[in-house]
Computed example of a mutant assay.
Amino acid sequence: MDGIVHRTVEVNGIKMHVAEKGEGPVVLFLHGFPELWYSWRHQIVALSSLGYRAVAPDLRGYGDTDAPTSVTSYTILHLVGDIVALIDSLAVDQVFLVAHDWGAILGWHLCLVRPDRIKAYVSLSVPFMPRNPKVKPVDAMRAFYGDDYYICRFQEPGKTEAEFASSGIEQVIKNVLTSRRPGPPILPKEGIGSYPNTSTTLPTWLSQEDVTYFSSKFANTGFTGALNYYRNLNLNWELTAAWAGTQVKVPVKFITGDLDVVYNSLGIKNYIESGAFKKDVPFLEEVVIQEGVAHFNNQEAAEDVSNHIYAFIKKF
């Protein structure tokens, strides 16, 4: 990862850490949970070598970016505001957007609110999920999967943080990143540290050095900022009422693994296959389902993901 430059920029009232490499059109990478800019290490190197300026921030509450203390400082409008300000700081009108997991949720809202800033969007793992005007998302998840569904468990401030602490940060990072259970994440009563029961041997795509880097950053910041994203899901539902029924009108490519927990829960597979996804995102150009790949496809299938990104964005 030689040549990656790290700096801090002021955005939307917070200091944001940014990693970047290369020159050319900007490709902006947004990470998910429980991750960092580092999740894009492979794509940063690949895209910067192909004539692009690869930019990957630590999102609000993560890594070396500020983590405001208030739960309600992590609404989707705060997050979108951070990224618009980041794009402004790069002195460009538009970026190619690539995002995964929570970053992908942020990416979809960015495309809804400020499509003028996005040249094209590659979404990993999480497709666009239209707002249901009749029920708040956490309420729907609790009704569907019960109180031990991971998003429901994350709602109470302090509770999941205590579970993570008792399990040990490194164990939590290993368990989450290496999970290959394709069903909805229902957490055991004894805590997330014991879910899923993964092998002590790391997969070839995740080194102990990688785990140590992630763990060291969460040891410094804790998980509260990251968990606060989930604690604003119902509030986000209220805040985004004005965009209900709005289509995403930017060019999109969607990539997921057939073992991804999102793809295999919440009716997502049917949403994609039925054509509803294409209806909501009319400029959806391609859906890629990677065989034998789980949730963290940007790391597990890094070269394939980088190739797909390049094949898509080079057309624009």
Rank of each mutant, 00 (worst) to 15 (best):
N236D: 14
F312W: 09
L187W: 02
P130A: 15
G107F: 08
V211A: 12
G3N: 08
H295R: 03
D280T: 04
Y230S: 00
I105S: 03
K315A: 15
V55D: 00
F296L: 10
G158H: 05
P196A: 05
D82T: 03
R41A: 06
E209R: 14
R7I: 15
H308N: 07
S49N: 15
V9H: 01
V27N: 02
D64Q: 12
S194P: 01
Y62L: 10
H17C: 05
K15L: 14
L59C: 07
Q290L: 14
V9G: 01
N132P: 09
Y229N: 00
L30V: 06
G191C: 02
D82V: 08
D148F: 01
V262E: 02
R60A: 11
D260I: 06
K21F: 06
Q247Y: 08
E170K: 09
V113C: 14
H308T: 04
Q94H: 06
L36V: 12
H109V: 15
H6C: 09
L30Y: 00
N270K: 09
G191L: 05
Y150I: 07
I255R: 01
A54N: 04
A99N: 02
G191W: 00
L106D: 03
L112N: 03
E209C: 15
Y121F: 15
F128S: 10
L79Q: 10
S48V: 11
Q171L: 12
F154M: 05
I87E: 00
A301C: 08
Q94Y: 04
V113Y: 05
R231K: 09
A140G: 13
H109M: 15
I255L: 14
F128Q: 10
Y310V: 09
F164Y: 02
R181M: 12
V92H: 03
T201F: 07
S48L: 08
A19Y: 00
Y263W: 02
R181D: 11
D88G: 01
I255N: 04
P68A: 08
Y229D: 00
R60M: 11
T72N: 14
R60V: 09
D139H: 06
W102K: 01
G158K: 11
V287S: 08
A294L: 10
A302V: 12
V172Y: 02
S167N: 12
E156D: 12
D148K: 01
V92I: 08
K217P: 01
L284H: 02
E303N: 13
S179K: 02
A302Y: 07
E190T: 04
D101M: 06
R114Q: 11
S166T: 15
V122C: 13
G267H: 04
L36Y: 01
E35P: 05
A226M: 06
W108T: 10
V287R: 02
A54G: 07
N232G: 09
D93A: 04
I268A: 04
Q290D: 08
Y263A: 02
T246Q: 15
H31S: 11
R181K: 10
V281K: 00
F214D: 03
H109N: 15
K15P: 13
V248R: 06
